[in-house]
């Protein structure tokens, strides 16, 4: 049976700037895997552990958090905070006997980089290998959105690819 993992990407305003500008069609063209959803935040430091867990409750097979480089966060230490919260979720998943690697933190430079797509592809491939989330109730349809926040919307073209 084919399996397209539901990957929820939580990224800050800065690391996702160009990705959002690409719009859905552009992202598809650039290789964003099917099943990946972008949830944009003002800063990755805004992410709570409960938001990440909610993504799994809502049916995510994997979660990808993208924030600024550790020493160059636009909000000083937001991406460090996010990284700590990702570690907390990993630990909790492991305690539940689930692969902690279903969630990963990526520190990327501001704006569009192929690495943004690469991060999504890496998670897509990794989670494809794991198979569907063991938290999914096959009898019940999962909710479509993870945190209910901004999905990748078509945006103005104009920002430059780096």
């Amino acid at each position: 049976m084919s399996f397209t993992p539901d990957i929820q990407i939580f990224c800050c305003h800065y690391t996702s700037q160009q990705a959002i500008a690409e719009g859905a069609a552009g992202l598809k063209e650039d290789g964003l895997p099917a099943g990946a959803t972008i949830n944009r935040l003002p800063c990755s430091g805004k992410l709570e552990v409960s938001t990440l867990l909610k993504a799994f409750e809502d049916g995510a097979d994997g979660v990808c958090v993208v924030g600024c480089p550790e020493d160059k966060c636009h909000n000083v230490s937001g991406s460090k905070r996010a990284a700590h919260r990702v570690v907390a979720v990993r630990r909790a998943l492991a305690e539940l006997g689930v692969e902690g690697e279903r969630i990963e933190m990526f520190h990327l430079e501001r704006g569009f980089h192929p690495e943004f797509i690469d991060a999504a592809v890496l998670m897509h491939e990794r989670v494809s290998g794991f198979g569907p989330s063991p938290f999914k109730d096959e009898k019940k349809p999962v909710k479509k959105k993870a945190a209910g926040k901004a999905a990748a919307k078509p945006a103005k073209k104009g920002a430059k690819k780096k």
Partner: peptide
Amino acid sequence: EREVEILASLLRLGARKQGRE
């Protein structure tokens, strides 16, 4: 409050993994 929210979510996930709600 924050830890209650987290634990409740983890308990629901843990139960779901065992096939129960």
